[in-house]
Design a protein around this nucleic acid. Sequence first.
DNA 1: AGCACA
Length: 246
Amino acid sequence: MLSGDIPPNQTIYIKNLNEKIKKDEYNVIFCIGFNLAELKRSLYCLFSQYGRILDVVALKTPKLRGQAWVCFSEVPAASNAVRQMQNFPFYDKPMRIQYAKTKSDCIAKEEGSYVPREKKKKQEEKAAERKRRADEAQQSAVPNGTHGASNGGPTPSFRQGPSTQEAVPPNNILFIENLPHETTGRMLEMLFEQYPGFKEVRLIEAKPGIAFVDFDDEVQSSMAMQALNGFKITPQNPMIITFAKK
DNA sequence: AGCACA
């Protein structure tokens, strides 16, 4: 499977994130590289379509930059995110997504099993782990190359049991909900046309409160989604933006 | 490539 042999986890581990973004290449909302908070916000927006997010962790230390953890309240949400967003071009670099190797503190806290760690202990654990792995590697000379012949391609879509929500893969078309019924096409145009790749807004006459917005491609649509998700046309109407179903 | 929780 794509995530190697790491067992499912509520938290996904993302690497290959773009570490250097020139600020003026993107809308101000998307400035990362210098602003960790913005990176976290973008990841939060991008992944919240898969489920409730408890925390997003990203650090800028030399060892940890370019990586992030997104903690979901449910494992199936994480599974969908790992599958659907695998290699998604985020700031021009394909995200590499796996399950996190360990339980996030925020999850442990929710479960009540959180114990504050000591720095020393952590180092020891790491050393021990490394040694264990080295031993394993020596003992089990892997039989032959063809093990799990999966790379890149879409995984055979096994449905994830009682997943609370459908996983919607990226799409150049956005689906907008929770609009005030007074919303006009022009209003939505003014909001969305500021983002590159914008094509058109389609209001559904028969169903007030929803709309579709077309972009040239899914990268551009996702940028607009990140920026405008939750945007309030009225205080009671935070826009809910998801990728349209194909 | 790199698995943390300031």
